[in-house]
Design a protein around this nucleic acid. Sequence first.
DNA 1: ACTGAAAATGTGTGCGCACACACTATATTT
DNA 2: AAATATAGTGTGTGCGCACACATTTTCAGT
Lengths: 365, 365
Amino acid sequence: MAKKIIRIKDIAKAAGVSIGTVDRVLHNRGKVSEDALKKVTAVLKKNEYKPNLIARTLGSNKAYRLVTLLPNPEQDPYWAFTHKGILQAENEWSHYGVSIVTCVFDLQEKKSFEEAAKKVLKLKPDGILIAPIFYKEALPVFKTFFDKAIPYALFNTHIKESNAISFIGQDLYHSGRVAAELICIGQKGPGTFSVLHVDEDLNDSIHLLEKEKGFKDYVNEFYDGHSVIESLNRTSSTDFSFKKRLATLLKKPDLKGIFVSSSRGTATAASFLKSHGKNGIRLVGYDLLEKNVEYLNSGVIDFLIHQKPQQQAFEGISCLVNHLIFKKSPQPINLFPLEVITRQNMPSYQVESINYHPQGTSILN
Amino acid sequence: MAKKIIRIKDIAKAAGVSIGTVDRVLHNRGKVSEDALKKVTAVLKKNEYKPNLIARTLGSNKAYRLVTLLPNPEQDPYWAFTHKGILQAENEWSHYGVSIVTCVFDLQEKKSFEEAAKKVLKLKPDGILIAPIFYKEALPVFKTFFDKAIPYALFNTHIKESNAISFIGQDLYHSGRVAAELICIGQKGPGTFSVLHVDEDLNDSIHLLEKEKGFKDYVNEFYDGHSVIESLNRTSSTDFSFKKRLATLLKKPDLKGIFVSSSRGTATAASFLKSHGKNGIRLVGYDLLEKNVEYLNSGVIDFLIHQKPQQQAFEGISCLVNHLIFKKSPQPINLFPLEVITRQNMPSYQVESINYHPQGTSILN
DNA sequence: ACTGAAAATGTGTGCGCACACACTATATTT
DNA sequence: AAATATAGTGTGTGCGCACACATTTTCAGT
């Protein structure tokens, strides 16, 4: 027996009032006598009314304008995937009157972030998805959003004091730990390990330092043998000293593995390692970028940690949609699993991305 | 500018006919003059009409009865997860008038499968999700479903000649390959590898042999050193010869790793390995069952391959719902990624399962 | 040319909800 | 006592679609 679904009409009948009164109670629009209120709430409690979210959206026909404030997808394949997820989400939710405007900024330019933020505000959005890459610059932006009562969700970088409705991302500390674990598997004896940050201004990249911390902690806790951990940082593609320092590193006979802290740098590191000769040096990086997949296939890269940018972006938008349209309070922190990609399971992930079923149906109920 | 959505009404106006005529064209219910048909299809092509799936379900109020034919969840934690996913799916789709009846069978009893199949038929289901564990017994069952024109989706075990609308599962051959890869990481020299099948009648378990094949192929292709692969099979918990054979295996000094082909057997193997002493023997098994997680944490198990039973079950039901309610033809083969679980990334998966957002929103296109 | 069936087309209703609006009953003011 | 305000309540409409049903048109058979 399928328990039948309770509608407003049913509540009204049971409480001996009209639909309108029930409606007023449900949305507490006031103008209800104490007597009626009591009756309705009593029935409501007994029956666990769940509004039919589908019917709810039907009549309204409101247009929701969401705006994203993310790094330029043309600048970085990681953000290109993110953008793909945004488009997918737009397609998914367009039925509900959702449209998405994309505002982009330059990963290297704090100014462009601030300018993009201004643009966002001008668009008078109903909700915002923001990647607050630049901590200091992001704070005042949050404030203006907050003051204007525009809900915003955080993406990629978690800033606790942001007042955002939700954070969508990964646990970066544990991401580093996973990387370390993968590098350490089956290795022993004295070893040098390296963390590579490529093309990032570390001052603004707390998130990369989180990864590094996790990496170091794991090695120190678990590595079976004496270990040295070296952190290398390439500030830009024209940073020549980096090449030298890397060459020195690669010459170390006990170099066991290299961890690249970002998806972008992964292929760069791989190309260096390839030309130098792999020599059993384990390489772990991020994401299924085209180049990375090639290097994984050819054995230069050993593992990739999948950050699922596309799916994360989809989730980010869905979170806003749930909040705005379905009035569902999102979970404040939505952490994606740290998925390990190897040569052998990689194809199974690529199929997935083609048939990608975005997560998030459970807007309902 | 949000491009406005085209409704039936718009089509009708543009084609100079009534809504009813457009409706007949869309659902080709016939009774349309050639002239009208031409006009409507022309407009239809120009405007790329997408029905509003939400509105579509509103009026109908039909009840859909789905039935599952799966192994008893009380018998096996893997199938308990599956069952959880079914319940989740029911909750998710109940708004659309979907109810799910669960028919279970005994994993060890072919007869019970046949009996359960009869029960399923008696329920006059609108759709069926079936795990055709027993190949030979499943074939006639498929035939009766097919003859009665009841759509059914396959779960877990793929049978090409089943005429099912979809298969939801994993690529088992590659699953074995991934397991082998994980066992081989960082190992060299002459090595013995073992595949353990626990409590399965191999005659009926083509799927386990698929995994074994993948495992063997990988080792033969890639292992750096002479390799021997031994396959061990415990037919039941009272199979005493197994214990002996396993003891012999564990004594081999060059034993590098053990691959357990099912989630159920994983903890069993782990307990043996623990009492024997790990000695660097790598252990790979399946799924985040409670015991397995413990063994993974304590270092007895090195890797788990996550089959995501819960999510898969959800997908299975969603597939039927899409087919029945939303008239969307499902992809014939829906392969889940082969997710690698380690000690370090395991917590990130457990959070996921709590906040699980089932995949499948994309009923809306 | 006229009837009657069949073919083609159009109209109306309900799905569950939100929201505007109309209405009633009581209290307050003039 | 009549006019007016106001709290409380009920009714009606539309959202986009499916489907039943009403209506019109066509055309064969007389």
